[in-house]
Amino acid sequence: MKNCERFTELLSDYADNTLAPSAKRELDGHLQECPECHSAADGVINLRHNLRRLSTIQTSPDFETILRTRIKLDRRAHVAPIWGMPFVFPRRLATYSATAALAALCFFYLWQRLSANALSPFPAGIAVSQMQITPNQILPEVSPAKILYTLDQVTPQLWPNFGVTRKGTERLASTATDSANTADSTPSARVVSPRPVTF
């Protein structure tokens, strides 16, 4: 059995006819004694013969036309400039676009945050909203939010409450007092900025 294993390793060379004469003689002797190895050797020789006889297939008639088109497209893709820059592969282009979009989004978000903080008299992190109010409307004092009003939207009687001494249209910030502490329904708006508006 151990001998069979050793001889099996030589079967391929035997089929290729590349065995050294001494090894070939030895193997021939073994094959005469061992029917299993003899059958395997026959099988390998036969298999080799059958594999060589396998029919060949041919490329489709339009193979070369398709290839030429692909080359043409490929060449164009590598030459065509986009905004003066050499073309990048579509997959890379998608990655670059996604990165650029993400960067733009981050930049826009940060810019919004920074500009809001710069304009707002309130500490960062406090939401500031703008609301439309009509003349003579009672200003809400219950809202915890800090609200920006334009002067022309506030009734003149309430101007002093906003620290306004002269006519103007400049924006003032106002905040409502905490609703939980105040049950008083008198319209009032507390001035956040103690400085009067100058024109």
Partner: peptide
């Protein structure tokens, strides 16, 4: 590898 592949194939295609 060729030897093992041939032996395997010949076994299956006997």
């Amino acid at each position: 590898r060729v030897n093992r592949a041939r032996l395997r194939l010949q076994g299956r295609l006997k």
